[in-house]
Design a binder for these strands. Structure first.
Lengths: 160, 160
DNA sequence: GTATGACCTCAAGTACACTTGAGGTCAAAT
DNA sequence: ATTTGACCTCAAGTGTACTTGAGGTCATAC
């Protein structure tokens, strides 16, 4: 168990590619999920003579960012977009990651702003004591995070 | 189309229960989704003599909060929890909604804090120019939003 | 040289959050 | 009275994000 990880370090030098098991242990992502991410083109591997996957070390970073996105409820298709300019098969450059960082930050900012807005609105609701339908922007999402498709109607006064 | 909504207002007084179509138009949630939420016990309806659903007006509020949660990636099971103390079959009191508001606010705060933390870390990464694996807490989620199951190992220096 | 564990592929299964469709009922209008 | 649109139930299908299992290969250890 812990000897697996110890073996990883003992057997492989710092520039060696990683096996799927090593990737899994070091990112906390199941091998099956790594297979899945690879099938989507989110990560990539080379193969040994015996057809086993080997991952370049920069894949650790990609996988970690994928798990972060998951924690925040960002769908994999959006992660795909966020990785748009980061090369998959070669080690990304300084600038590649810098661009990616800025993309991620913009995405996070949008989410944070949406949440902050809702917090303010809920505070207002607590203030007014009734989660009022009259004033609460919470209940008219068109102007919160942007509506997809036909959004709710504004609710009338008598519904409060 | 727009005459539907007009008809709603013309036909029903402010204290009348709403049909599923009215609920759908006024919340932007499809009738099939309302059926689904009802099957989960997130909302409730009474039935007419002809077995059609009728929704009390306070259900509008519940449905709107469900859609808010969805926008933030909160699973319906968590919404269930957030509604724990809000009565389903009678109109909730002032205090019921106030308690619910506070629950929601705590939930939102946790999410916002997680995102803010990641933003700070990404800013650091942009600062250091390389999304470094050395310093970046982004890549060690244990202390960010709390890990579920076996979390990633801390990454070693040479992986940066 | 054979056993053991890590790996491979491919198909099927799971959980969540719904939508779609079939087949039938209800209610308002003509 | 019958048509039309809104509604009903129940079963099956959809998309996302994977996991599980079967059947087989690879690599290291004894």
């Amino acid at each position: 168990m812990s000897s697996d990880a110890a073996a990883d370090r003992a057997v492989h030098g710092p520039d060696e590619p990683l096996t799927i098991g090593e990737m899994s242990r070091r990112t906390g992502v199941a091998p099956s999920a790594l297979h899945f991410y690879e099938s989507l083109g989110l990560i990539a591997s080379t193969r040994t003579a015996g057809n086993q996957r080997r991952y370049a070390r920069h894949m650790l970073r990609r996988v970690s960012l994928i798990t972060v996105a998951k924690r925040l409820g960002i769908p994999l298709s959006d992660v795909q977009d966020a990785f748009a300019d980061v090369p998959l098969t070669q080690t990304p450059s300084h600038d590649d990651w810098q661009r990616a960082s800025r993309r991620w930050k913009r995405e996070l900012e949008k989410r944070r702003e949406g949440i902050e807005r809702l917090e303010r609105e809920l505070t207002g609701c607590i203030g007014c004591g009734c989660l009022s339908m009259k004033a609460c922007g919470l209940l008219n999402p068109d102007d919160a995070l942007g509506s997809q498709g036909a959004g709710p109607q504004r609710l009338r006064d008598e519904d409060a």
